[in-house]
Design a protein around this nucleic acid. Structure first.
Length: 408
RNA sequence: GGACAGGUGGCUGAGCGGUCAAAAGCAGCAGACUGUAAAUCUGCCGGCCCUUGCGGUCUACGGAGGUUCGAAUCCUCCCCUGUCCA
């Protein structure tokens, strides 16, 4: 059985693509921005609010959910969709980023990564196979292979070693994915049948309780598996990596290891070079990127999917994105500013609250401040992407780019 | 009226002869944040001067005197605050 993932390109314009990515939990309009909800929560906002913002797909993280609450618990609660009560698409990252971000707590070997839990110091092992199993239990729509993301700057030897290891891991992940897929689906089906039987035996009262608890039956659809291209800032390594990952064959291709400290021009250059190597007819995902500007530049280089913690983390730290650039909302100069965060913004926050009020919430450490800033920033990102997509569809992308690049 | 205990930078509060423009925390100001160990982290935080600095200078540890080469630190008197006794 194949997965539900189908990718359809509707329009191409000046290197950019606008399309539709069909998943078991709905269709995603691409190019898209995916809010990051590492621990099963896009920090500071509710799932209802995410829906209102028009988020079509969100991220979650293998490593973090494996540690807490544990992937088996998530599986029992109906997978991530049921657990989080998020009916739309979900992509899980493999934990490859944590190889870099938790470097001090991890040790990479040929077989996988030995982590010490950042929560309690306990030892854990994540292999490419294990990452597949955990993600199967989490039940997203798209899952990622385990890769090794290296820090910047890195020597060519380091980049090459990580790139080659990422390739070997990708192969193992793919093999394990194919092997596991059928048995996982069989198990899911039998679990569902058992659940139905139990429900039937327990009579009408428990049936009411079951429907009230809103725990859906486990999702049987197998997540699609995306491969990740590494190779640091070296174009030859990127080419080698892309060729190997494509040879293994995945439903989508990600570019990892960018925006880790290198210059903008380097990011764009490597992204462009790598994206051009990837299959035309498969989604391309630039992992962890980026600023509003990065998204536009990425789309212009043929990227379809992005994710980044920036809109959510910056929001919590009082930094908001506007059509006029970044704003440190905690700054004294906003203490008596009656304007919305961005007068040109149509979001629910900007329609209702002033800079002065939001600044006050931050200064007073009221959690509503973080929520309002997050709602605004996510709207800004998602709405920017809608505009970009519209520009591609209408054939005005090039003009759109030059207007945005000229600055506000 | 008497006995103790105290008065330190916006606040709390260390320091109790030199290395003190004075610890630390808070508050304040600014900056950073790119597949989230993050509602976090970093810097500044008496005035003036200089690009810089373990830099110069002025004003500062309740007030006024004094001891000393040198005082937030020791002495004298005064003012104020708290607690207790009358």
């Amino acid at each position: 059985m194949s997965t539900e993932l189908k990718f359809e390109i509707l329009s191409r314009h000046a290197g950019a693509r606008a399309g539709l990515l069909h998943t078991a939990h709905g269709t995603i309009e691409t190019p898209c921005f995916m809010p990051v909800g590492t621990a099963g929560s896009v920090k500071g906002v509710t799932q209802e609010q995410l829906q209102q913002l028009g988020a079509q797909i969100i991220l979650a993280n293998t490593y973090h959910l494996y540690l807490r609450p544990g992937h088996e618990a998530v599986r029992e609660m109906g997978g991530l969709h049921g657990f989080m009560s998020w009916p739309h698409p979900i992509l899980t990252d493999s934990g490859g980023y944590q190889v870099m971000s938790l470097k001090k707590l991890s040790r990479v070997t040929e077989d996988g990564v030995h982590f010490r839990s950042h929560l309690d110091g306990s030892p854990h092992f994540l292999s490419p196979e294990r990452a597949v199993e955990i993600q199967m239990a989490l039940g997203p729509d798209i899952m990622m292979t385990l890769d090794e993301c290296v820090e910047y700057p890195a020597s060519t030897e380091t980049m090459q070693r990580a790139m080659k290891l990422t390739g070997r891991w990708a192969r193992k992940a793919k093999e394990h994915y194919e092997k596991t897929r059928d048995s996982e689906e069989e198990k899911a089906v039998s679990r569902r049948q058992k659940a139905e039987r139990t429900e039937h035996d327990e009579g009408p009262q428990s049936e009411i309780q079951n429907s009230k608890s809103k725990i859906p039956t486990p999702e049987s659809r197998t997540p699609a598996l995306f491969g990740i291209v590494q190779g640091g800032m070296d174009k030859n390594l990127r080419r080698e990596s892309a060729e190997e990952i494509m040879e293994i064959g995945f439903e989508g291709y990600a570019i990892g290891g960018l925006s880790v400290g290198e210059s903008k021009s380097e990011t764009y250059d490597v992204a462009e070079h790598t994206a051009a190597l990837l299959p035309e007819d498969r989604p391309r995902y630039l992992m962890g990127v980026g600023t509003p500007e990065d998204l536009l530049e990425g789309v212009a280089r043929g990227i379809d999917m992005f994710d980044c913690v920036m809109p959510t983390r910056n929001a919590r730290n009082g930094s908001v994105f506007t059509s006029q650039g970044k704003l440190g909302i905690k700054n004294l100069r906003f203490a008596r500013d009656p304007l919305p965060l961005d007068p040109a913004c149509g979001c629910a926050v900007c329609r209702r609250y002033s800079r002065a009020y939001i600044r006050h919430l931050f200064i007073a450490r009221e959690m509503l401040g973080a929520t309002l800033a997050t709602l605004h920033n996510l709207y800004f990102y998602l709405d920017s992407m809608r505009e970009i997509r519209q520009a591609i569809l209408s054939g005005g992308f090039e003009k759109f780019c030059s207007r945005v690049r000229a600055g506000p």
